[in-house]
Amino acid sequence: MIRTLYMNEQNELHRCNSPEEIQTEIKWMWVDFESATSEEMRLLRTYFNFHPISIEDATSVNQRPKFKEYDYYLFFVFQAIDLKSMKPEEIDVFINNDYIVTFHKENAEEVDKAWRNLQNSTLKAKHSTHDIMYSILDATVDNYFPFVYELEEKVFSFEDRHSVNISTEELIEETFDLREDLLMIRRTVNPMKDLVYRVLEGRLVNLSKKQRILLHHINDHLVRQVEMIESSREMTADIRDNYISLNSFKMNNIMKILTIYSVIFMPLTLIVGIYGMNFDIMPELHWNFGYLAVWLVMIFITIGMIIYFKKKHWF
């Protein structure tokens, strides 16, 4: 699907399907490709004459956020996050002063929001193609916050899980799942932060005062998101280490108790083994008080070892 907005010389905003339908002089136009067919994608090559490499980057998948300068336009790759699946989705932007072309394979709420804002704005005539792009970028970055907040809330909720009847194994598994989600969103936010920084500090893009203020605002949001993600990752690492340490502590206690039981029964087993031998000449076997004496010796050894272990604070 293709949709087009364009500003004519009279500062009037109009809409049509394909840019080929425009029959008048224009100041700029915005062409949005969503789930474009092969025939529609042909316009990238024939109508706009974009470089084949940039077209390949746009039509392929899983491109990292970046921007690149070509002869008469700039090419940007943004990464949005799907509101349902939490999967990254690519938004590609071709831009110069005369047009902005957005290309995405799925519906992009960020592009739709910028589209609606432009149509509803009372200052349409003051908008430029770069203003539109930064509006899309701002909406893209703002949409990261719900996911970052949700993951941070999950991290904080672990503090309340101690009173819940749940096994350590389940908590460890949930922690690793949470770290996987944090890693996924980190792979999106960090490159976007680098992209915005490069635009702010680079010389390829001439920024107006208004655009620079907006980019600083976007950059501040990205810095905050990165800090929240890193803080959550550190907390999950601490939670994981704490539960592993707790599990090791429990296992050590169990092993210590079993070892103490084993040590106590070792001399008793020796005594029983000795008097269980089938020799004919064993004087103690014919002694009237032999059975009682063996019991007393074993009880004395058991009590003595328990007292010794207590004094050593082994349990």
Rank of each mutant, 00 (worst) to 15 (best):
G276L: 11
I218E: 08
L207R: 08
R224G: 12
I307F: 14
S167I: 05
Q211T: 03
V77C: 00
D177M: 14
D92I: 09
H14Y: 04
K193P: 10
Q119K: 06
F300E: 04
L182G: 05
S38N: 06
R187I: 10
L83T: 12
Y144N: 01
V148F: 12
D32Y: 03
H162F: 13
L83F: 05
E180A: 10
S60A: 02
D177H: 14
L292R: 08
R212L: 09
A114M: 02
L195T: 00
L178A: 05
A114E: 03
S121N: 01
M266Q: 08
M7L: 10
M7E: 08
I264S: 04
D71R: 03
W314C: 00
H162A: 13
F176N: 15
K113Y: 09
A114I: 02
M192H: 06
H217Y: 05
W295L: 09
L204P: 00
D92T: 05
V223P: 11
N17C: 07
F145P: 13
I257P: 05
L207A: 07
F48C: 07
K84R: 13
G304I: 01
E25M: 15
D57F: 06
M298T: 10
T140G: 00
V155P: 12
I136T: 00
R45P: 03
E9F: 07
T140D: 02
E174N: 15
T140Q: 00
I100E: 07
P267G: 03
I2V: 15
M133R: 01
Y70D: 09
L215Y: 02
F147Y: 15
I271G: 00
L83E: 15
E110Y: 14
T46E: 12
I274E: 04
K126Y: 11
A125S: 15
I213R: 08
N11A: 01
I307E: 05
Y99V: 06
E201Y: 06
E153Q: 11
Y99K: 06
E159I: 02
F279Q: 04
N8G: 02
L43H: 04
K193H: 14
D32C: 03
E69Y: 12
E227P: 07
E152Y: 05
I218P: 03
H14A: 09
E39L: 04
A80I: 01
E173L: 12
T236W: 06
V93M: 14
T129C: 06
M277F: 08
L285K: 09
M192G: 04
R45M: 08
T269Y: 05
K312T: 02
E201S: 07
L292T: 13
R224H: 11
E173F: 15
K124Y: 13
M282K: 02
D131K: 12
F265K: 01
L183T: 10
I100F: 09
E21I: 07
L200F: 05
S135H: 14
M1D: 11
M1E: 09
D142H: 06
K113P: 04
